[in-house]
Every structure is written in structure tokens, then in C-alpha cells.
Design a protein around this nucleic acid. Structure first.
Length: 409
RNA sequence: GUGGCCGUAGCUCAGUUGGUUAGAGCGCCAGGUUGUGGUCCUGGAGGUCGGGGGUUCGAGACCCCUCGGUCACCCCA
């Protein structure tokens, strides 16, 4: 019996992975155009990085980390998110300049899997470190929005909120705790337990929505500076024509955020886990990690979820041409043709087995090739038979002009 | 971590009140067409019935445990 993959992990194979390629390429392209370099950080880190950076009181750190002791007795954790690592790398890299980087890769959280929630899942994201301007927030939010657009999700909306600066948050926290204590009788046991530990977390409880409708909101208790910041972000998004809406009860599950928090939703993805991506400003994070105060803002997009939300799309050809050897003796020639066409930059493949012509054509069809090139006795007179696999039309083409013919059709 | 539903070929499923060598469709491979796919016809390969234990003369069907899937809560990407 073949061992199964661990619970909550997936094999992502063709043709399903075709969409992943589209998304990953779109992201890579966007990040480059917006001036973000590539960052690669370890997939596991000292456990302390996350308990300090993400916050010891958070759900992610309390219950969802893959933590283990390595052979040297160190406590290490598979990264549940990337921001803490990137900021750590920035601080240790000795740079004090503005730092813009993009990443892509798997994250790990020990959770009960469900639609759009896996134990190993993939994120692409960017971090804009060292820039306090609200325009940085706008830029980061725009990247996520453009990414969704680029893969065909055109109805995305940015849900936006401000949770204020740490001082605002502390004051608001008192206020909220007082409100929740007063209405404790109407709350679920779960919510009641959190009042003392982390009242902010009660805010997005679905079961307590009725009570929460009357609760004070973070946005209603901002310092003038924080209020000005979020107003500037909103104005920036308006100028960019990026649809956004106020979400007074949006709070992020990680402790390092301040001021701007946001997430993306789309009607094309309706599940319990509706967020396609999210992020926010994290000015306190560098200090929490023991470094100097350095502002930052970032975003993480859930690749698995976005792929689920991507429109079906046409069955596009994934090969420009499939080369067919008419007889076993001409395989070497077929290979030469394949090599020269690949060198031309075309997507080309052939069957390396000793298959019948019929089987080779079947393979061409299944591999979603746009055309087939037959190498047979016509090769002796310098010609190749080209067939358009969609229309079925065939034509005799000069062997040196095959690439040109494929591009011109 | 909690709860509902569900595990029979690669996929979707059928398997009568427990009874001999476990079936279908699709997919896959080959042939029909000694150089032509996507249609059609014929044939073939492929299953320790998720795993373990139990009840029974006999279990794919019943019981227990366990692993996994799925959806929801919680939380988040």
C-alpha cells in the first residue's frame, strides 16, 4: 500500500497545475514591474521568531504551528507565514534603506482542513519595508488587486479597516473589553473566555455577530495621525479606481499589525474561507523582534484559494507542436527537428517510445498540442507535413521553415 | 480542538435481508486504418472493497478502533 500524503497536503499535478503556472508567472511579472526584488527565506525558523513576531497570544501561534525539536535540541517551527522571516532577514541584512521584496512558497499551519484551508498552503506576497507613507500601503494593496485582475478575477473588492496605532489600540481594547463584559451574558463561552486575553479577537466571531453590531469599532477611536493615514490610503485607492469598502470589524489574526489592515474577496469564491489574500501595515514588528523601529507594509495572497476562484478559461494549447516520427528509423531526425524548434523558443515535444503513428497523434491530441509535424519520407526532399490539430488541415512545409509556419498560422 | 456526512478500479458510482471466481460508465493500452488524433467498433490491462481487530460456517456489506476525505464551527491565505 502506497503511503498517502499527510492530512491537509496536496499534490498539484497537470493539468490543474497549469493555473498555478499562470498565477505564479503573473505574480513574478507584477512584482518585477513594481520594483520588488526576490527574497527567499528558510521554510523553518527558530520557534521564538514567530512567538515574538506573530504574537504568543494569537491563534496561529497557540494552536496552529508545526513545531518540533531538531537533532540539536533546538525548537524549530515550519513557517506559518513569511512576514516575520522577511523582516528578520531585513534587520540582519544590515540594510537601512527602503527594501521592497517579493516571495512565493509554502506555509504550514496545523489546522483542520476544509475548503480553501490546507495544512500546507501557498502564498505569494510582497513586503515594503522602511516606508511610512500611506502611498506604500496603496501600492501594496494595488499589487494584490492587479494580481487578481491578471488571472481573470475582475470583481475583487478590498475590505479595508484601520486598527490604529498601539496606543489607540490599547485604549480601544479597554473600551471593547468593558462593552463585552457588560454584554457577557449574550456572548458565547468562547467569546467570553477571550475578553481578558485578547478582546479584539472576539470582533470577527460569526456566532456573536448580533452583539457585536452594537460594539465600538477600532476605526471610531483613532488618533489624528492614524485617522489621517487611513484617509490617505482610501484616497489613494480611489485615485487608482480600486474598489474598496469599509469593514469596521476587520481585524487581523496577527499581533504585529497597526493602522491599515485589508483583505480581498470576490464573488467568484464563496466559501467559509472567503479571503483570497490580506495584509496590512506592521510598523511595530521590527521592534518586537528586537530591532530598531522600522515601518513596513505587506501583503500575502492565498495561491490555493485564488486558483480555485480563477475562471475556467479555454482549453489552451500547451504545446506549439508535437513531432511525429512516421517510422522508427526517423526518430533521430525527429529529435533533431525537436531540438531546433525548442531552440527557436517554441513549446515542443515528441514521444520517445516506439509508438505507432496513430498512438503518436493520440498523444499529440492529449498533450494539447496546437499542431503536429510529421517527419517521414518527405524529409528526403526537405519537407515536413504540418497538421493543424484543431482544423485537421494539412500542408507540406519546407523543413527549414517549420518554426516560421507555426508562428504564422 | 469540536461536530455532520462519506471511504468499492486512475475518476464517477452500482453491488439485493451477510452466501460461490466483485461489476458498469468514463479514462488508459492495443488492434480495426503496414504514415494521422479528436468520432465509431473490437479486445485488453487495472481492485489485499482505506487499514486493523471482532461477530459468523461464510463479511465489500454487521460491530469496535484507527487513518483519510469532505463540509461547517473556530481561525485565517
Amino acid at each position: 500500500m502506497i503511503p498517502r500524503p499527510p492530512k491537509g497536503t496536496d499534490d498539484i499535478l497537470p493539468p490543474a497545475s497549469d493555473r498555478w503556472r499562470v498565477l505564479l508567472r503573473a505574480f513574478d511579472d507584477l512584482a518585477e514591474r513594481f520594483g520588488y526584488g526576490l527574497v527567499i527565506t528558510p521554510m523553518f525558523e527558530a520557534t521564538e521568531l514567530f512567538s515574538r513576531g506573530v504574537g504568543a497570544e494569537t491563534e496561529v501561534v497557540e494552536k496552529q504551528m508545526y513545531t518540533f525539536e531538531d537533532k540539536g535540541g533546538r525548537s524549530v517551527t515550519l513557517r506559518p507565514e513569511a512576514t516575520a522571516s522577511v523582516v528578520r532577514a531585513y534587520l540582519q541584512g544590515g540594510s537601512s534603506a527602503v527594501f521592497k521584496v517579493a516571495y512565493a512558497g509554502p506555509m504550514f499551519r496545523y489546522e483542520q482542513p476544509q475548503a480553501g484551508r490546507r495544512r500546507q498552503f501557498h502564498q505569494v506576497g510582497v513586503e515594503y519595508i522602511g516606508e511610512p507613507s500611506p502611498d506604500a500601503d496603496v501600492e501594496v494593496i494595488e499589487i494584490g488587486f492587479r494580481l487578481l485582475e491578471a488571472v481573470g478575477i475582475t470583481d475583487a473588492v478590498v475590505l479595508l479597516n484601520s486598527i490604529g496605532d498601539p496606543a489607540d489600540r490599547a485604549a480601544y481594547r479597554e473600551l471593547l473589553a468593558a462593552f463585552l463584559t457588560e454584554r457577557a451574558g449574550e456572548l458565547t463561552a468562547d467569546a467570553r473566555r477571550r475578553i481578558a486575553a485578547n478582546p479584539l479577537r472576539v470582533l470577527d466571531s460569526k456566532a456573536d455577530a448580533a452583539v457585536l453590531a452594537d460594539a465600538p469599532t477600532p476605526a471610531g477611536h483613532l488618533s489624528p495621525a492614524a485617522a489621517g493615514h487611513i484617509a490617505a490610503v482610501r484616497a489613494g485607492l480611489d485615485a487608482m479606481a480600486i474598489p474598496h469598502q469599509e469593514e469596521p470589524r476587520l481585524v487581523r489574526g496577527l499581533d504585529y499589525y497597526n493602522r491599515t489592515v485589508f483583505e480581498y474577496q470576490s464573488a467568484s469564491y464563496q466559501a467559509a474561507q472567503a479571503s483570497l489574500g490580506g495584509g496590512g501595515r506592521y510598523d511595530p514588528l521590527a521592534g518586537m523582534l528586537g530591532g530598531p523601529e522600522v515601518p513596513g507594509v505587506g501583503l500575502a495572497m492565498g495561491v490555493d484559494r485564488i486558483v480555485l476562484a480563477m475562471p475556467a478559461g479555454d482549453e489552451e494549447a500547451v504545446l506549439d507542436v508535437f513531432v511525429v516520427a512516421a517510422d522508427a528509423g526517423r526518430r533521430t531526425i525527429a529529435l533533431e527537428l525537436v531540438r531546433s524548434l525548442r531552440a527557436e523558443g517554441l513549446r515542443v515535444d515528441l514521444d520517445l517510445g516506439d509508438k505507432s503513428v496513430k498512438a503518436q497523434f493520440r498523444a499529440a491530441d492529449r498533450r494539447r498540442a496546437a499542431t503536429a509535424a510529421v517527419v517521414g519520407e518527405e524529409w528526403e526532399s526537405g519537407r515536413v507535413t504540418m497538421k493543424d490539430l484543431r482544423s485537421g488541415a494539412e500542408s507540406s512545409v519546407d523543413a527549414r521553415e517549420v518554426a516560421k509556419w507555426i508562428r504564422r498560422r
